[in-house]
Design a protein around this nucleic acid. Structure first.
Lengths: 212, 212
DNA sequence: GTCTATAGGGAGATAGAC
DNA sequence: GTCTATCTCCCTATAGAC
């Protein structure tokens, strides 16, 4: 609430604060990605944006709040939501390629995903909910494809959705250890090709008289 | 070197020390699995075996050495190496089921796998080498299956091996977050069924005259 | 909003007695 | 081998001036 003062609010003093927070969240993303939540320090985040440790904690009251900000910032960068229907497979591959080019993004994800399985970790519910949501989203997309006859017979949409998610997470970890040897997008595409059938050549939309 | 004193060495004082170390390694496995390497403390390991923190560090000089011991202990428990040839798929599934019943084992693996991608982590080379080794082992097994005509046409053994490994790691993480919803063995089996062909009913060994 | 100073709590590792 | 005592370091978070 509250846009301060006159109408020209986008240039008001709050714009600068919001930008500051964005910078801090970005720095936190990099630090926690490189060192993990427990290994990273607020001081290091502060150094990266050129301010003191206490100033960072002025914007985000605790270290845990800083992590949440980093995760939300990551979502803002990464989560172009996958397309629907026919474009599902395509957009999964496209997003994998996109993530590969955003440094620190995969690191943060892989490190925190593992770390957050531990007791009392501030990102635990974030990942719980994320997995739950993505599993049902993927399953629904694949169910639509199945109804359109685009899924190989015998492939279960729920299982395939879970598998796709697990494969994606797992391949990111392998890529972090050996980026030169792993082609994330190609590996995902190979799996999708395995479960999907090619689109019928001519859908025969209505009954086209031999048009030009 | 040096079996102390007389010939009855297996009962000698070293046997007790070896057993002590095993206990410590087991406790370290549990602690680092539940809290991660950076989140876990030597003190907590010590508490679990009922000795002081300094006594633990007498057996393993540093915390990092303690982690290595925990990983080696884990390998000793878990690494029944997968079978070859026809039994490959079967033994992968069997090992997944076996791991599920060994508490802490999957936790340690998932937590440290993510954590060790961070800078200067003592388990980094452990996982680097593990991934490298398993990728080539899996690829070789799948190449043999391909030669035997047991792989679906168009499936590349290297890609499938990398995929199987990624899927396995990824499904373990999902299982940790939602054990009730995820069936690790079934998910792995579904993938293997997807890339493999059933064994031919009668292999027609040489040229059997219409034998009984 | 930003800083310096500091409180307050652990952590890993060492020294040395028993 | 095991302990107690301790060193040294670093981290999060707070207090309060500017």
């Amino acid at each position: 609430m509250a846009i301060k003062g006159t109408g020209r609010s986008p240039r008001g003093p709050y714009a600068k604060t919001a930008e500051r927070r964005r910078q801090i969240a970005q720095a936190a993303l990099e630090v926690f990605g490189a060192r993990g939540y427990r290994g990273g320090t607020v001081q290091e985040v502060a150094d990266r944006v050129g301010m003191s440790q206490t100033s960072v904690l002025h914007h985000f009251p605790t270290k845990a709040a800083l992590l949440v900000a980093a995760l939300e910032h990551r979502d803002a960068i990464a989560d172009e939501s996958p397309g629907t229907g026919d474009r599902f497979a395509e957009s999964v591959v496209r997003q994998a390629e996109h993530n590969e080019g955003a440094p620190g993004l995969i690191e943060l994800y892989a490190v925190l995903c593992g770390e957050s399985t531990t007791e009392g970790h501030p990102a635990r519910t974030y990942f719980e909910e994320r997995f739950e949501r993505l599993r049902s989203e993927y399953a629904e997309e694949l169910r639509h494809l199945a109804e359109a006859g685009r899924l190989r017979p015998g492939v279960d949409p729920e299982t395939a959705g879970t598998t796709l998610l697990a494969l994606w997470d797992g391949i990111q970890v392998q890529w972090l250890f050996a980026p030169a040897e792993i082609d994330m997008a190609a590996t995902l595409k190979a799996y999708l090709d395995l479960i999907m059938l090619p689109a019928p050549a001519a859908p025969a939309p209505a009954a086209p008289a031999d048009a030009p």
